[in-house]
């Protein structure tokens, strides 16, 4: 392959700009397995003691319960977002329903509101239906807030599937549901997959909603757990421990991202390959 210009200046510039981030990440990893003298950033010894929280709940409280809660939280949101986006997106792309354009416009407007402007209304609704301070309530709110994005993305993917495939399926004797399930859904799989990843990453990192909508609940997600660990006023405060928990919390997302990077990019491609 020939290029119009050399690569290395770009790489160099990007490297310089990213240096603080790289250093930060490097120390995030290094500090979790080393000790360093007070007042110095240079580590002087190797230790695994910062990872003791995985097996020893005395220092920070049990880490596995919040982890399980977060997995449940994330999984529920992914299931809800995928279920509703894949069906609603199909309906909006294909079915000739009343107020279709109006509905699409409203969905897009919903997407434009930042969370904080909606939080008071959401709070009131949750209070009213009795889901305030419950995991279910937070899951529903988080999933609901992601739906506009999900529906819109899935509609885009459905739009790229040729009409003729659907008509051919109907001619072959299949019901509309079978056509959707067996013929159309497989074509939008890249979109579903990317949307699932997006939803998972987003839900995994959610901090605000559990904090605001379930402040005194008996469950804890990892982001909240991390917050209690990092509280400088607490008796167990330890910066290296905080970093270890943080790394533990980030690793699944980094792994997801590293493994499925290509598929994630799909979401902006908006379609299947011919």
């Amino acid at each position: 392959m020939t290029r119009n210009f050399a690569n290395w200046p770009i790489v160099l510039v990007l490297l310089i700009i990213s240096t603080p981030i790289i250093i930060m990440y490097a120390f995030l990893v290094i500090d979790t397995v080393t000790t360093s003298p007070p007042g110095s950033a240079i580590p002087n010894g190797f230790t695994l003691s910062h990872w003791r929280f995985l097996i020893d709940p005395t220092a920070t409280g049990d880490v596995w319960r919040p982890t399980l809660t977060t997995i449940l939280f994330t999984a529920s949101i992914v299931v809800i977002v995928l279920g509703i986006s894949s069906t609603a997106g199909y309906a909006l792309s294909r079915l000739n329903m009343p107020f279709r354009r109006y509905f699409l416009a409203v969905v897009l407007v919903m997407h434009a509101f930042p969370l904080v402007t909606l939080i008071i209304g959401v709070f009131l609704v949750l209070q009213f239906v009795g889901l305030y301070n419950t995991l279910t309530g937070v899951v529903l709110v988080k999933a609901g807030l992601m739906l506009p994005f999900g529906i819109w993305i899935m509609k885009g993917f459905y739009d790229t599937v040729p009409w003729e495939i659907e008509m051919a399926g109907v001619q072959d004797g299949a019901s509309r549901f079978t056509v959707w399930r067996k013929l159309i859904l497989p074509q939008v799989k890249p979109g579903l997959f990317a949307l699932a990843l997006f939803a998972a990453i987003d839900a995994w990192g959610e901090y605000m909603l559990p904090r605001i909508l379930a402040p005194s609940a008996d469950f804890e997600v990892l982001s909240i757990y991390l917050n209690t660990v990092s509280d400088p006023d607490s008796t167990t405060y330890n910066f290296n421990l905080f970093k270890s928990v943080g790394l533990f919390y980030t690793l699944p997302i980094l792994a997801l991202y590293a493994i499925f990077r290509d598929r994630l990019m799909n979401i902006f491609g908006g379609g299947t390959k011919g």
Partner: peptide, 27 residues
């Protein structure tokens, strides 16, 4: 359409891209 028993060949063939030829014909 499902009850009419009509075979249609579309201009762009409308084959099901995720299925093998066998599965396309068997659908």
């Amino acid at each position: 359409s499902q009850q009419r028993n009509v075979g249609v060949v579309f201009q762009n063939y409308a084959l099901y891209p995720h299925m093998s030829v066998f599965d396309n014909i068997a659908f």
